[in-house]
Design a protein around this nucleic acid. Sequence first.
DNA 1: TAGCTGACGCCCT
DNA 2: CAGGGCGCCAGCT
Length: 112
Amino acid sequence: MAMDDFFSQVYKVVVKIPCGRVTTYGAIASCLGSPGAARMVGWAMNASHTSSRYVPAHRVVNRNGLLTGKHHFDTPVAMQELLENEGIVVVNGQIANFKDCFWDPSSELSDK
DNA sequence: TAGCTGACGCCCT
DNA sequence: CAGGGCGCCAGCT
């Protein structure tokens, strides 16, 4: 894993997100050491398709629990469908039990 | 080569 | 309580 790129850092965290759980851009950025680099996390997601590894970008939402990047998927509903498929309740493009299914990498990942 | 944008977040007014 | 502005790093034009 010589990929020390910022992108790969994000990929590793996102891929480790448990099924039925979601995380936020800020949480990942903060876990990487740059809380203000949340934008960059989104940018990494955009490049996620360039990664040899599958990156469940649908599990990554903004701090409001809103599916901001749904429009970047093959279909604007793909993200919601995937989340609902994992048992996550999505209403109006927003996660209903967001705090309930929220997964903090800087806490859960750090503890592991 | 330099500048701008980009799937965001937090602080200040 | 609400709105606006600034900060982060990297890729693309």
